[in-house]
Amino acid sequence: MDKLQRRDFMKSAALGALTVTVGGVDALLAARDARAQGAPFRVLTLEEGGVVEALGETLVPGARSAGIAHFIDHQLSVPPADALLEARILNIKPPFVTFYRAAIGAIEAASQARHGRRFAQLTATEQREFVDLMRQAKIDGWQGPPGPLVYSVTRSDAVDVVYGTMEGYAALGIPYMPHIAPKQRW
């Protein structure tokens, strides 16, 4: 990568494209593309990413393919001051990975306790019922950040990736009208 290319590359990375290694080559991908190409996570494990995708899809249809897991994973990999997660404005204490790991752990433990299966293995109906109980703090034996807070934070992430982008506005049929358009989704 020559100097000019590297400067453009770093600039794009700073603007939120994910720097991932695909086939041994560094590449800049949007979260949606990163997911489609099977880019590895930086912080989350595959299992954690699976929970995030299943939860995100339950919260907002389309969140999985929009790349919610890669979005969160990328934001967890950057310094908290650079993170664009709504968690940062909800008084969640950094490092944010602590919150997300605790939330994922609580979901998995509760899913096993209630259904004997991991959350990602539940049916769509079961996932929906689970989330509805979680948001109301009605899951017995819940161990982790309060269920309503987990719901609020992860729902915001799902809303962000599906509705908060320029593509999301277009899909809803409303003009985005930026003064300074984001060069990447996040």
């Binding site: 650079d82 664009l84 709504e86 008084n91 962000d160 930026p178 984001p182």
Partner: peptide, 28 residues
Amino acid sequence: ISSDFWGRRIKTVGAPFILEGQNPYAYS
């Protein structure tokens, strides 16, 4: 940048306050 994502950068991350009470303050 005109974006709810990017707009979060201009708010505090990790405020140095332990927020308590019946109505904890939405500091960040």
